[in-house]
Design a protein around this nucleic acid. Structure first.
Ligand SMILES: [Mn+2]
Ligand SMILES: [Mn+2]
Ligand SMILES: [Mn+2]
Ligand SMILES: [Mn+2]
Lengths: 145, 145
DNA sequence: TAAATAAGTTAGTTTTAACTAACTTTTGCA
DNA sequence: TGCAAAAGTTAGTTAAAACTAACTTATTTA
């Protein structure tokens, strides 16, 4: 079921979003993103990664030099950052409830691609409010046992 | 990106979940689910629906008699109900924030397939608590302008 | 610095879930 | 009752995104 995702300006597919997210993460943590590391982070083959990188280059989200390496373009970095930010907000929200980190990661990794800006803003504001209400959160955690 | 969804006993794909959800909805509203109505609800071709119905029959989620009609099996109905319930809980949650109905529907339709039971329980409990705190909700709605 | 290993690429294949076109069955109505 | 329209089915095609196998380029190390 190809559900269109209008949540970000340049409507990228879930797949593209996950690649960009991983690439930015690798650049932030080690300074560069190699094919082999992207592949291992996404648990897919290097061949698939090469293929996608070439596509992202074509789409202007990164510049790629064969066999050498890649850098995100301004557009690519901006998009990657918004994807990472959305992931973080959703994670922060779910962390309020004492859900297992693995479960949170799994759920966020799937749902993030389907959250529109209005919904994300609501969740962000809600998270901020809930953080100021430990009593309410305590009640919720009890309910979850 | 084939993200496995362990959120329901018999791990059905997002696609299967959407079909079952539509089928149950049609049965609830008009008493039966025809190929042509499932197709129009999901905005896909009748041929695709026929194909999926045959698959769901094979998988034991419904009984299908060619050219005649279908009924959900006990397993199929149980699964469909849990899918519908999850959809409802997520909708109830997002309705708290004054998000447009269209946006809510779109987001829920996508994210529902990636919400694990613990996350769903947390959201359910949170919704119940927030309903008792109109002041907090009012504050959130202001933030969203 | 040459051989071995690691990394990256290409070509072709697979899977899933759509699609269209042509056909069959059922239903509704003159 | 029979025929046209609606509904449903089949067969073959397409597209996205994965895969494997074989190949090329780069890096490491003896
Ligand atoms: Mn993510
Ligand atoms: Mn993701
Ligand atoms: Mn739904
Ligand atoms: Mn859905």
């Amino acid at each position: 079921m190809p559900v269109k995702n209008p949540s970000l300006k340049s409507a990228a597919s879930s797949t593209v979003e996950d690649y960009l997210e991983r690439i930015l993460e690798l650049i932030n943590s080690k300074g560069y993103a190699r094919v082999v590391d992207i592949a291992s982070a996404l648990k897919i083959s290097q061949a698939s990664v090469t293929n996608m990188i070439q596509r992202l280059d074509t789409e202007g989200l990164l510049n790629y030099e064969k066999y050498r390496g890649l850098v995100l373009t301004t557009a690519g970095e901006k998009l990657a950052r918004s994807i990472a930010h959305r992931h973080q907000l959703l994670t922060d929200f779910l962390k309020l409830f004492g859900i297992d980190d693995d479960v949170i990661y799994h759920d966020v990794e799937g749902m993030e691609h389907h959250i529109s800006p209005p919904t994300l803003r609501a969740i962000e504001a809600l998270t901020a409010q809930l953080r100021r209400r430990p009593a309410l959160l305590a009640k919720l955690k009890l309910a979850g046992t």
